[in-house]
């Protein structure tokens, strides 16, 4: 501000110009963001609407509060102080899948839980993204040979980012999420394909030995998941 200016008289345009100049360079450097650069001195930017939406999506992600096993402890640390995932616009854990954009799958998935996880995933609104946290969601990890363990989350739901580790450190999780944000901003996400283990009605299953055996116990309309351990990776 000029010191010679008379008090009580305000020149609107001058104030505006000064503020803009200050923001553009020098004094108030924190306003020199990429966005401001893109704006320049004009209040308009030219972009595609879906590109803009992708940028918005990546910059404001609601995570699902979803704890399965060991990794969820490191996930809690990532949400909590010190690591504070919220700094990266991806912090707030939502308890309901209907309010969440991203599901972090933090742990081993076993036969009994996989249908529930699929149900939770299905309840999330589109577009939705999946972060597989830890070795168990990649391949079953240390429990891969277990009789009850699904060999990776990818068998059940599509996964965008795999973060290796047992468990991954919070830094690794943050890096993975930053990568996911990058992908989202670029408009990439995993194609939704039919997974090896799908929820389907019991009546629709192929009539083999085990289906015949369970026919008396399970209702035709019940949703079931059929596991074929021998063909699993």
């Amino acid at each position: 501000m000029s010191s010679e200016q008379k008090p009580f008289v305000t020149d609107d345009t001058q104030v505006q110009t000064e503020t803009r100049d200050a923001r553009m360079a020098g004094a108030d450097d924190r306003f020199n963001s990429k966005l401001r650069e893109a704006f320049g001195s004009s209040p308009f930017i030219l972009t595609k609407f879906d590109k803009f939406m992708n940028w918005v999506r990546g910059s404001s992600m609601f995570m699902l509060q979803f704890g399965i096993a060991c990794c969820s402890i490191e996930m809690m640390h990532t949400y909590a102080i010190k690591h504070d995932l919220d700094r990266f616009a991806a912090g707030v854990p939502r308890a309901s899948p209907r309010q969440a954009d991203v599901i972090i799958v933090p742990g081993t998935i076993v036969s009994k839980f996989a249908p529930r996880m699929k149900r939770v995933y299905d309840q999330m609104p589109e577009p939705k993204f999946v972060v597989g946290m830890g070795s168990c969601t990649i391949s079953g990890g240390p429990f891969q040979e277990g009789y009850n363990v699904i060999k990776g989350a990818e068998e059940v739901i599509p996964v965008d980012i795999h973060i290796p580790g047992c468990p991954p450190r919070p830094e690794a999780l943050i890096y993975g999420i930053a990568k996911l944000q990058e992908r989202i901003a670029n408009g990439e996400s995993s194609p939704v394909t039919v997974k090896p283990y799908e929820l389907e009605q019991f009546g629709d299953l192929e009539r083999d030995e085990i289906v015949d055996k369970l026919a008396a116990q399970i209702d035709e309309d019940d949703l079931v998941m059929r596991y074929n351990w021998a063909d699993s990776p």
């Binding site: 249908p115 019991f202 289906v211 399970i218 209702d219 019940d222 998941m225 596991y227």
Partner: peptide, 9 residues
């Protein structure tokens, strides 16, 4: 290696 079925009842 036998297949199994889990329900979501």
């Amino acid at each position: 290696d036998r297949p199994q079925i889990a329900t979501l009842r």
